[in-house]
């Protein structure tokens, strides 16, 4: 980052914190709303409260961490194929 350049609104740590916790609050609200609204579930496990949320969170973390591991085997220098 340019030293001395003004931090943008998306880089200000306080704003980033607000964004993160705001998102967490919305996620919590969605689970509560789901309990109120209810939903037609095709599979039994689908009806568990917060199933989609937990699934989304878990898959995201798993994908990123596996991807990170994969990089150890797959990563090469940028000019790998040009050599």
């Amino acid at each position: 980052m340019n030293e001395g350049a003004k931090r943008g609104m998306f880089e200000e740590p306080r704003n980033v914190d607000r964004l993160f916790w705001g998102l967490a609050a919305v996620c919590g609200a969605l689970v509560v709303l789901e309990l109120i609204v209810g939903r037609h579930a095709e599979f039994p496990f689908e009806g568990w409260p917060g199933f989609y949320g937990v699934f989304g969170f878990a898959v995201f973390v798993t994908v990123v961490l596996i991807g990170k591991r994969l990089r150890r085997f797959l990563r090469r220098e940028e000019d790998y194929y040009d050599r």
Partner: peptide, 14 residues
């Protein structure tokens, strides 16, 4: 709602 849950929780994971 559940679709929003899936996506926003994923964003939260990020």
């Amino acid at each position: 709602l559940t679709q929003l849950q899936l996506l926003l929780f994923a964003a939260l994971a990020f």
